[in-house]
Design a protein around this nucleic acid. Structure first.
Length: 577
DNA sequence: GCCGTTTTCGGCCCGACTGTTTTCAGTCG
């Protein structure tokens, strides 16, 4: 017996119908469906119970629900589906409920954005807004685009946690301001920002200063701060404009290290570390490491770990999952340093859904400190992204040759984000793929297959002799979408066997996630870290991919694009043997 | 599509506001 359809499902369905009808310019029906949805939403009794009790008549008797809608509800309750609704959804396969939940986005706007830009979800919307695609549409402007970005940020706030992508730049600008205040000797962020977690709850700032009143005055007057929630002599709590909360703690210099350690966490790591301290006859707290009453360490984090017989542990891997044991044995991995990437292997241009030309992206990459990029425009199956067919890809190859002659000390590699079809074949012919410097593959469509089908699909693509990198391997999107159902261990074995590197995607996907990176590492996989940028500003995101790699215990040697272009290509091709 | 009866079809809220336009469309309340 399937679970009975909930009132919420019925109400959502009716409401979505009203949105679609409204967008289609139908008169009066939308209000009727909306009214019916509201009635259902506010019912105390479950419709399925009501229906069992007295059938269609009781539903028809509800205010705002007449014969037609009552019959639709009956169909839903009986079969779990509604043909009328599904017909509409086929025409408009976008998440209208989610999209119209954003301020100033109504059904008409949502459907217009779907028709023009293929936007189906808030994630798509955000991506398009950041890529400045919306302001280019007729009837939309820059204000609207910025407002969309702001509104989406607010939505994320309501979920409680923000992406590191927005939290870190905010944190860094505040630290910069505070460091410029007279008397400040240290200023650093602790907590999940320092550990570079995917999502951030609040921003914990620590400072030491000889003039606390000046630092406090500066802090509470920062434009980023919306409201001061609490203000004492050593701790200030605020709400930032983007909705995140944060603390500023003013510390004594001799406690700075122990406070930094304590507030950085994570909790499991701290508990385990305190147990080690107890075992060795110490007591560890945010105020220092004590032997009896004697303060033996606490000015620096290094001093605390060292006194306990441990190497200093990078914040990203403080999770109590083997790092303390490794630190005791002096066997911590030498994590890939920030800023150590020489190339970016996923870059979209205006040949598909990116916003800038190949040359503009190359110049921006060079300015960001890189010496090569791979151009990975989408391929033909991804029509919404204006994917390239064989002819266009060949033309792009010629264009890249031209760009390479124009730009010195930099290399643009010919590549592709080639779509993996449902059965695992690629949607570009081998004869064209062969002309590329490297071939990246990815999945965008038909993501909801069974685990068996998906595993088979990906492995078939990995087996293709020309394939070098699997992009965003699991399809997950932070805070938004789970990974596809698949047998990751099998995919991993195939990647290693067929010599395909796995991408660590630096965008809001952060795909692979840390645990899978570590699993892949143990299986002998190699990685590339890429930005997946669609605009010239996107190369800054690479730091988040590095953070992700670090949380997965990855070293420089594990990440192929830490190498200069020639040895990168050699190493990548070398995986095939 | 619902409602309310004037029992079988006509009425259903609409103006403020905003961003984009240059006279309007869409959202919100």
């Amino acid at each position: 017996m399937p679970r009975p359809i909930s009132n919420k499902t019925v109400a959502d369905t009716l409401y979505e119908i009203s949105l679609i009808l409204d967008a289609e310019g139908v008169s009066f029906k939308p209000q009727a469906y909306e009214e019916a949805a509201n009635t259902v939403r506010s019912l105390d009794e479950e419709l399925s119970d009501l229906y069992k009790k007295c059938g269609l008549k009781c539903i028809d008797d509800l205010p705002g629900i007449g014969q037609s809608i009552a019959e639709k509800i009956e169909e839903l309750l009986k079969t779990g589906r509604l043909a009328y609704y599904q017909k509409l959804k086929k025409k408009y396969p976008l998440d209208l409920l989610e999209l119209t939940n954003i301020q100033n986005i109504g059904a008409k706007t949502a459907i217009k954005l779907y028709k023009k830009l293929g936007i189906k979800t808030v994630a798509d919307l955000e991506k398009a807004a950041h890529a400045q695609k919306i302001s280019k549409l007729k009837g939309f402007g820059q204000r609207t685009e910025l407002d969309i970005i702001r509104q989406i940020a607010f939505k994320k706030l309501s979920r409680g946690r923000f992406l590191i992508h927005s939290a870190l730049p905010l944190t860094e600008s505040i630290i910069k301001e505070l460091k410029s205040v007279s008397g400040v000797t240290h200023c650093e962020v602790a907590g999940s920002v320092r550990r570079r977690q995917e999502t951030i709850g609040d921003i914990d700032l620590l400072i030491t200063t000889s003039k606390p009143e000046l630092a406090i005055k500066k802090f509470v007057s920062l434009p980023e701060i919306a409201r001061v929630l609490e203000k004492g002599p050593s701790k200030i709590m605020v709400r930032y404009r983007f909705g995140m909360n944060g603390d500023l703690r003013i510390l004594k210099p001799e406690e700075y290290g122990s406070a930094l350690q304590y507030f950085t966490g994570d909790k499991e790591h701290n508990i385990a570390l305190r147990k080690i301290a107890i075992k060795k006859g110490y007591k560890l707290s945010e105020y220092g490491l004590f032997k009896g009453k004697k303060h033996v360490a606490g000015k620096t984090e290094e001093g605390i770990y060292k006194t306990l017989g441990l190497d200093w542990i990078p914040p990203e891997i403080r999770t109590n999952s083997g790092e303390l044991e490794a630190a005791a044995k002096h066997q911590l991995p030498d994590l890939i340093p920030y800023g150590s990437l020489k190339g970016d292997l996923q870059v979209q241009t205006n040949w598909s859904d990116g916003e800038s030309s190949i040359l503009e992206m190359a110049k921006a990459a060079r300015a960001a400190g890189l010496s090569y990029i791979g151009i990975t425009d989408h391929t033909q199956t991804l029509a919404v992204a204006h994917g390239l067919n064989e002819d266009k890809l060949k033309k792009q190859i010629t264009e890249i040759d031209r760009v390479n002659k124009k730009i010195e000390g930099f290399k643009v590699l010919k590549s592709t984000e080639c779509e993996i079809l449902t059965d695992g074949r690629l949607d570009i012919k081998d004869e064209v793929l062969k002309k590329l410097d490297l071939v990246c593959v990815a999945i965008h469509g038909r993501t909801k297959m069974s685990s068996e089908e998906m595993t088979k699909r990906i492995i078939r693509a990995l087996k293709h002799p020309l394939v070098n990198i699997l992009l965003h391997p699991t399809g997950r999107i932070v805070n938004y979408r789970e990974a596809y159902k698949m047998d990751f261990a099998q995919v991993l074995r195939a990647a290693v066997e067929y010599g395909v590197a796995l991408e660590i995607n630096s965008s809001y996907r952060l795909d692979l996630k840390d645990a899978l990176i570590r699993q892949a590492l143990e299986a002998g996989a190699k990685f590339t870290i890429s930005s997946d940028t669609h605009s010239t500003g996107g190369f800054a995101d690479l730091q988040f991919g590095i953070a992700q790699a670090r949380r997965g215990w990855t070293t420089k040697a594990d990440v192929l694009n830490t190498k200069p272009v020639d040895s990168f290509l050699k190493a990548l091709k070398g995986l095939k043997k």
